[in-house]
């Protein structure tokens, strides 16, 4: 499986790699949807065999319905947990990070929104952002924060789109905040209210 190709962009936009077995005392994986395949690919490598007894996988199906729980469960890692959503997995993730020691390796795979939120949680717990391995799989849908009302809209595929909180029409910038784990959405018809161009499906 090749990694997703992204258009060239500005320097605040994250770039992603390919998960590879890290050296460490414990391994925490968080994945959604097709991200499960990146985790399976990692464990298919010979050097990952001995990691299984120290690995913990937290997985949630994708917003598109993709559910690869069975494949992950079959890996036989020390701890596997299937969460219905990232929000529902957050208390568990926070507890695992709070209890962890230096030497923990963190891996995130799947959609950009999921990876960004995992990296934000790891950073809040004290790990450098760069220490989180990330691999993009599946949907390119974006997590976008409305700069006006501060509400975050998940799984944005259209540009412009309507903010799910305040109802303004927003265009999606490539400017990305690792703290908020979201791209920035800015009102497209601020200067000429009502003049909103037709939406295009930019993020499939």
């Amino acid at each position: 499986m090749t990694k997703t190709m992204f258009e060239p962009s500005i320097t605040s936009r994250p770039v992603y790699g390919v998960l590879s077995p890290g050296v460490g005392s414990a391994h925490l994986f968080v994945a959604d949807g097709e991200g499960a395949e990146a985790v399976c690919d990692l464990f298919a490598k010979a050097e990952a065999a001995e990691m299984k007894s120290a690995s913990h996988i937290i997985y949630m199906p994708g917003a598109n319905g993709c559910d690869r729980s069975a494949a992950l469960q079959a890996l036989g890692v020390a701890q596997f947990y299937r969460a219905p959503s990232f929000a529902s997995a957050q208390p568990r993730l926070a507890k695992v990070l709070a209890d962890a020691h230096m030497g923990l390796q963190v891996y995130a795979a799947g959609t950009e929104g999921l990876m960004a939120q995992v990296a934000t949680a790891a950073q809040a717990a004290g790990l450098p952002y760069e220490a989180v391995q990330m691999e993009h799989r599946g949907s390119l849908a974006r997590r976008v924060q409305c700069v006006h009302c501060k509400g975050v809209t998940e799984n944005v595929t259209l540009d412009p789109f309507v903010c799910s909180h305040c109802g303004l029409s927003l265009f999606v910038r490539d400017h990305f905040s690792r703290r908020i784990a979201a791209f920035q959405g800015v009102n497209i018809d601020a200067e000429d209210p009502g003049l909103v161009p037709a939406s295009v499906e930019r993020f499939k």
Partner: peptide, 22 residues
């Protein structure tokens, strides 16, 4: 520019939207 959005960014991330200068 939005402090709330940019806070936490590195020097180049924070200036990413500026055209040409990079």
């Amino acid at each position: 520019w939005s402090l709330d959005f940019d806070i936490g960014m590195s020097f180049k991330q924070w200036h990413a939207p500026v055209p040409l200068a990079g």
